[in-house]
């Protein structure tokens, strides 16, 4: 009986003790919290914390933007690269297929040569890549004081200078991080500007691809028409002259429509040749095969076209 009362009482008492301890702890926590607040304001730790938070924030923001930028620019540059390769193939096609067909066709009428070789543009990332961006400065260069490292001498110095020293350092730190934020914003702006520029360039190179594609197909169609005409004329002239082995048709004897086709092909060849001899993103590239003399002529031509174009 007494034992039960005793245990009941002891449990009550221990409950009460717990309660008192708990309240006591709460009070102490509150006092510590308030005291820490005052101390932090006095030493400038509050400012320091703000600086740290901002540093964290701008580092994250910069890294995120930089990753985005790297990803997007790599993709854009790869796209542009793909188009440049396509253009290179078109150039090769112009010489290898279109021009040789044109020469062989027109040789039945007149001697035609195409000098020079297609210009294979070497795609270099360097033209498109933005200069290495400067990331957020090193923490130790920006932070003039570190409250995270506890040191008795340091705490004593805070008190002895009435907090002036540490408050000042904390404020300077915050200001430095704020300056860094402004600078980082410029870096981000430059990246974004560059991405937009790349997009526009991609779009423009798209246009060029279309020019090649459409013009080559028109040229090829015109060659078909020309071939048919030449063929017809050959039959006609052969039947008239009976000279089956004659090498060439006499251009003076064929209808003007075919001369006009010849003229159009001749002029269009000049256009295509120029297109095949140009670099579209830069001057870097090489002239495909051919002898040096031809390359030199071509190079001069390219330069002069650029001169006109510029």
């Amino acid at each position: 009986m007494f034992g039960r009362i005793g245990s009941w009482a002891s449990s009550k008492i221990s409950n009460m003790v717990d309660k008192v301890v708990e309240v006591g702890r709460k009070v102490i926590d509150k006092v510590v919290e308030k005291g820490a607040k005052c101390w932090n304001a006095f030493t400038g730790k509050t400012t320091f914390d703000k600086a740290e938070q901002l540093y964290q924030e701008i580092t994250e923001r910069y890294d995120k933007k930089k990753t985005q930028y790297d990803k997007s620019s790599i993709k854009l540059i790869a796209d542009i690269d793909k188009r440049v390769s396509a253009i290179n193939r078109f150039k090769q096609d112009i010489y290898d297929v279109q021009f040789s067909r044109f020469i062989s066709l027109s040789n039945r009428l007149h001697n035609v040569t195409v000098k020079g070789q297609p210009f294979e543009e070497l795609f270099s990332d360097a033209i498109l890549e933005v200069k290495a961006s400067e990331s957020v400065g090193q923490r130790e260069n920006l932070f003039l004081i570190d409250f995270n490292k506890f040191d008795l001498v340091r705490v004593a110095s805070y008190v002895l200078t009435l907090g002036f020293y540490s408050r000042k350092k904390a404020k300077q730190t915050l200001l430095k991080v704020q300056e860094e934020e402004a600078r980082i914003n410029e870096e981000i702006a430059k990246m974004q500007s560059h991405l937009r520029q790349l997009k526009v360039v991609a779009k423009s190179i798209d246009n060029v691809v279309e020019y090649f594609d459409v013009l080559i197909s028109n040229y090829s169609k015109l060659l078909d028409r020309f071939e048919y005409g030449i063929q017809t004329q050959r039959h006609k002239q052969m039947s008239q002259s009976g000279d089956i082995f004659a090498h060439k048709l006499d251009f003076r004897l064929i209808p003007i429509a075919h001369i006009e086709e010849f003229q159009a092909l001749f002029n269009l060849s000049i256009v295509l040749k120029q297109m095949a001899n140009l670099g579209y993103l830069s001057e870097s590239g090489k002239v495909k095969a051919g002898d040096n003399q031809q390359a030199k002529v071509l190079f001069e031509k390219v330069v002069s076209i650029q001169g006109i174009a510029a």
Binding site: R183, K190, S193, Q197, S204, A309, A310
Partner: peptide
């Protein structure tokens, strides 16, 4: 003013900002 064939090159060469590094400005 330039040939449509040269537009890309023009676009690449346009400088939308100066080449000064932000650290140098700072």
């Amino acid at each position: 003013g330039c040939s449509p064939l040269q537009v890309s090159k023009q676009l690449i060469n346009m400088e939308l900002h100066d080449q000064r590094e932000s650290l140098a400005v700072m």
